[in-house]
């Protein structure tokens, strides 16, 4: 079960891609953090948050997440340049158009 030693330095393209996956990993955490921001409003004085304003905030964050995820997935969808395609497809060649 020995793995080939991991490459230490990557060419620019592979390096970019790795940072892209880092971004893809960070995105849900940032999203969760932003979605929890309303908790801070509730902790304030007794003039509670307004549904309309809160809704605008939530939907704005939501929309931003969608746009960023869309941009990231456009790049991540391409095959990884520094990884060979899956060796064992087990005869599973069905692909969508």
């Amino acid at each position: 079960m020995s793995r080939p030693p991991a490459t230490v330095f990557l060419e620019r393209r592979s390096y970019r891609r790795r940072r892209l996956t880092d971004a893809a990993r960070m995105l849900p955490l940032v999203g969760a953090l932003l979605f929890l921001v309303p908790l801070l409003w509730a902790g304030g004085d007794d003039s509670a948050a307004r549904t309309a304003a809160g809704g605008v905030f939530i939907f704005a964050v939501w929309g931003a997440l969608i746009v960023i995820a869309g941009a990231l997935s456009r790049h991540l969808i391409r095959p990884d340049p520094d990884r060979a395609p899956d060796g064992d497809g087990a005869g599973d060649t069905e692909r969508g158009a």
Binding site: A24, L27, P28, G31, A32, F35, W62, L65, I66, L76
Partner: peptide, 15 residues
């Protein structure tokens, strides 16, 4: 909206 936010985070964090 929480019922939709959870799945949104899961899908956005698909990686």
């Amino acid at each position: 909206v929480t019922i939709y936010l959870g799945p949104t985070l899961v899908m956005v964090g698909w990686w």
